[in-house]
Nucleic acid binder design. Structure first.
Lengths: 282, 282
DNA sequence: CGCAACCCTTCCGCTCAGTAGAAGGCTTGC
DNA sequence: GCAAGCCTTCTACTGAGCGGAAGGGTTGCG
């Protein structure tokens, strides 16, 4: 940056992004010094940048002075098409799946070699599970993951198979040959199944949302208790939901915000002035 | 910034934030020049910064080269306690409300003088409505808004009443005196009601989620067709949901991520390398 | 088909915004 | 009472950032 930076060649932008990168699921709130350490920035530099981000509400502080991701950052992130298009289209279909099963309903996309959870519905009686909206899990051990992977290109499948595969439970399929066969069966069957491969005691069924080209744009699935009825009974409904989402995505292809009523809201995009502070959650 | 900036005194950070600010609900995707104009930055400066944001995936480009909010920005935003705490705690309660009514279920917090929608559940048969997760609507015309406002401090209520109040329908209550009385009744009754005040043909019932100090941390509510049964019949369930959320928030006060299973996921916070691109939604 | 009006991208010399050390104040804990 | 943490403010030095200029690509009109 301008000035006598110790580490030259690093842009201001990259430092700001490093500050955001300092936060993750395991570290949703951090002190200034922690941000400084995790971002690899001098304390004073961190202080200055964090102060500016806080003024914008990209970060906020709790009563102890710790920082967490702020309302404005959350608000901006929700303008992503993952939310405005995919989630918006999928939501009613997922709701129907929930009504039919009262179990965890998932919507995921592939990001790199992970399944990334875009939406999750859970009711009071669903199995508690590891997935979270905005979280990532490996593709080979999850229902939606397998549904995403099975319809991918052979190259991508090879890339996944050629890497060490994590093994969260003793039922996780990690042998490349067996996994490859499993993916073929999945493709033929039309939906993916897992049996305690991610978490002991729970199974899942999932189907891909295919685009016009036949590539997997997303996947929907259910996670249920292993002791419950055979998951295969749920498959037809899940397939219907997946196909419904696919055709609705296709139909609204040019609408950046399907299902959204544009009339009134135009005047309400900017925070109205007045006492700041959102909610009192903390 | 460093350099011969035309407009001096503006920080790099503020320019990056201005780029994010260029996007909103009405403009979820923008060309480079549009960003430049809306952010008030020279084209070349915009180009440089946008390129860096894109490398980080805070922005992404569609097939026409237009920019939209990227996966990484979405992912970071979801680390906000609005999502990780409030939404996570509220979700099962909201799901129960949905099961009981099959109508739109809302969760909102106050931000400034607006109601900010944190979560929305809608099924295939719910009334289509204007609210969206991440969106704002005025407090005086919405169910959750009135529930949030009625339990606020007299000062805040006065601030709202002293400003011009928007009038989306002819049933919107905009007379300060009447609105003040309405808020008192709401407080006494324990829940808020609207009748076609935001959208013709739909009514809503909502209850506040009160914190230990009795201040409204959030509000939950339903939006239903006006022709359906009296909304008051839903009130007890909504109150129960609101109280349930309140006590669960209190019980998990020190857990930044209630309901989340921490075991495995630690290894999965970072995007695994490999072919980028999330989903094929566009 | 030529010209105008848009886009987006790369290049590069001038310079002020950014940098980080030093210093001080405030807690917590031994 | 001192050490080890925090966080914050101040300030002088300087290279990262700025944006005009130039060029190339696409669309659309007469």
């Amino acid at each position: 940056m301008a000035g006598n930076a110790r580490e030259t060649g690093r842009t201001v932008a990259s430092r700001i992004l490093a500050i955001f990168d300092a936060f993750d699921m395991q570290h949703p709130q951090l002190s200034l010094s922690e941000i400084s350490r995790r971002a690899g920035l001098p304390l004073t530099t961190t202080h200055r940048l964090v102060t500016e981000l806080t003024r914008w509400r990209g970060l906020e502080r709790d009563e102890n002075g710790n920082y967490f991701i702020g309302l404005r950052a959350w608000e901006v992130g929700l303008l992503s098409p993952l939310h405005t298009r995919l989630r918006e289209v999928a939501q009613p279909f997922m709701q129907s799946l929930y009504e039919a099963s009262r179990e965890n309903v998932h919507l995921a996309v592939r990001d790199g070699l992970d399944a990334m959870y875009v939406e999750k519905l859970a009711g009071p009686r669903s199995v508690p599970i590891i997935s979270r909206t905005g979280g990532r899990l490996p593709m080979h051990a999850t229902g939606v993951g397998k549904a995403l992977l099975a319809w991918e290109s052979p190259e991508l499948i090879n890339t996944v198979l050629s890497r060490p595969l994590e093994r969260p439970t003793r039922y996780t399929i990690t042998a490349p040959g067996r996994l490859r066969r499993e993916l073929e069966e999945t493709r033929q069957r039309g939906y993916a199944v897992t049996r305690e491969e991610m978490t002991l005691g729970s199974c899942s069924v999932a189907a891909p949302v295919l685009d016009r080209a036949g590539a997997p744009a997303a996947a929907v699935g259910l996670v249920v208790h292993s002791v419950h009825v055979e998951p295969e009974k749920l498959a037809p409904q899940i397939r219907m939901a997946a196909d419904g989402i696919a055709s609705r995505l296709e139909a609204t292809r040019d609408d950046p915000y399907p299902g959204y009523v544009h009339d009134f809201a135009a005047n309400h995009q900017r925070p109205s002035p007045g006492t700041g502070r959102a909610g009192r959650d903390r």
